[in-house]
Design a protein around this nucleic acid. Sequence first.
DNA 1: GTCTATACGATGATAGAC
DNA 2: GTCTATCATCGTATAGAC
Lengths: 173, 173
Amino acid sequence: MTDKKEQILNAALALFAAEGYKAVSTNKIAKKAKVSEGLIFRHFENKQGLLDAILGQAVDRTKVLFAPIIAESDPKKVIERGIRLPFTIDEGEYPFWKLQFKLKWEIEYSGAEKMRPFIEKLAWAFTELGLKEPQKEAEILNHIIESISGGILKDGLESQKPLMGFLLKKYSL
Amino acid sequence: MTDKKEQILNAALALFAAEGYKAVSTNKIAKKAKVSEGLIFRHFENKQGLLDAILGQAVDRTKVLFAPIIAESDPKKVIERGIRLPFTIDEGEYPFWKLQFKLKWEIEYSGAEKMRPFIEKLAWAFTELGLKEPQKEAEILNHIIESISGGILKDGLESQKPLMGFLLKKYSL
DNA sequence: GTCTATACGATGATAGAC
DNA sequence: GTCTATCATCGTATAGAC
């Protein structure tokens, strides 16, 4: 944590999440990390390498996030946990997830791939519950969850909170 | 159309939508528009002014887009048109709307304001149809429509098309 | 591992001629 | 209205000393 390499990573994540990848200069990162600018290039070769280092965690962090849902064997609980998911993210992790949403539009960077296991699990749950078109139910619910997540990341938890209880009722949980 | 100012506007819109505001240089815009770089600053003062000129249309274009829905007096038709909306956007307008989505994350730029009349109309429709929590129903449907729109803009119409018929059924239309 | 100094192309923007 | 030439600054990246 007091390691300079860590400081660079933390500063870069915070700045990229707040202002975007292109908008942030290595100079700015160095200043925020209280480190010389050259050190960034020693550790990460170039600016892209710095972004890659941050993004390298994304696959793992997404897996961790979805793990309890994937492991769940009760279909109703799968839906419930899915709906609750965006509301249970630790605020300290907001910058990281905000960066994922930003990059989805700033560069091509496919976040869709990482959602697949989650969507499939939702589809499985809807199948178990006897819904007619489980795959499409799953995709719609995923759309809702993704859009709500975006809303939380952009406008704060409070802006979306009323929707959680409503959704749980709507999916009769 | 053959007007140089128009050429700049068109080139800038296409490039901003494809690569983002920060990522595109005035030099690149000038080359695409087949115009001298200096002319951009004669017409728009600075790069931000060029973006503002493009964004100036956003409020009006959004109004035009929602106008038929706002004017609709049959609540069922309101829901139906809302669901169909993202699927009926002219492909030639994709760059413009893609830019709106991009900027929502690249700069603060509130697109939320412009959606309000639409959400309120949905809420009115759900009220007419006797739903328990029309306001929340409206916000959820808006989330779905927004996320689907994003999907179309990012991955193409085909990626989302199967969901339209399903949604119409789900809302029993 | 870390810092200072610096190369050098790109970028937003201006001045002046036509 | 439009172009060419030009500028100051910023941005990424490297070299070399400690």
